[in-house]
Amino acid sequence: MNRLPITKTPKIYVGGAFIRSESARVFPIRDAAGNFLANIPQCSRKDLRNAVEAAAKAGPGWAKRTAYNRGQILYRLAEMLEARAGEMSGAILMGNGAATPSSPSGPRRRRRGSLGASQEVAAAVDRLIYYAGWADKYEQVLGNVNPVAAPYFNFTVTEPMGVVGVLAPEDSPLLALVSLLAPVIVSGNTVVALASGSQPYPAIVFGEMLATSDLPGGVVNLLTGFRQELLPTFATHAHVRAIVAVANPAERKALALGAAESVKRTRLLKTEEPFDWAAEAAQGLYAIRDTLESKTTWHPIGA
């Protein structure tokens, strides 16, 4: 008699812990043939609120880490992902078919772009390495000493904004998520991210890698669920200081409207414009800058 395998229960990763949605709701993911694979947490507004609390709690400590240390942790994360590349590839392949409000009946067979699962994992590893390297350098490029016309030493440094909401696109469920997350956390921000609605499973597995990467709990919080349900809360939660999202026109308007209430910063990429997540152009210093504030300090020079 065949042994019945034990399947892993997918959980969201919040505050360094693996938990179910407080709403106790789930939605199923199925394989390409339509067979049931697992139940994914369908997060609620309260889950989002709790995740923001966790991110806010982790923020000051993470921002105070040395740039060197943040870089080391991102390198470590890349190592974790590389070491478990096979598992992640499987997750990408396996998760390719969730029930979502847009396709409530289940499996979608589309694979994004031409990138295979293992290539997507490799690209995600490289992306982490890229941003890990920026950790102790972006400040040297973005900051300044300013030659003011008075006896003052004047310098501009960058600082993280705080809690940043990330809305991942439907496709490239790992690479896009990593590409959006990494430039945000490298500078000391903390993140509450909503995974791809149609392919949430890679994010679940990624959470397990985050947990083993020395990244302090709460720095990255990964939620799964339905975008329509959570987007308004991402937009209006005043403690979320910036939104990084790939969104359609209606979503962008909703995000901007909500952001207006607390003068939240937004970095909104367009779903309707094709975006090659694997390209060199999908990474860069200015993605880091988008979730940084500039602070200028003056001090007299005297004796």
């Binding site: 300013n146 016309a149 008075a150 004047n154 501009t156 200028t296 300090t297 003056w298 001090h299």
Partner: peptide
């Protein structure tokens, strides 16, 4: 966005100005 240490309300074209939150 601007911190004046042992001074206040100083401005200069070379000095970035603007806010948080």
């Amino acid at each position: 966005g601007v911190v004046w240490a042992n001074t206040y309300n100083k401005f200069d074209p070379a000095s970035p100005f603007g806010g948080y939150k």
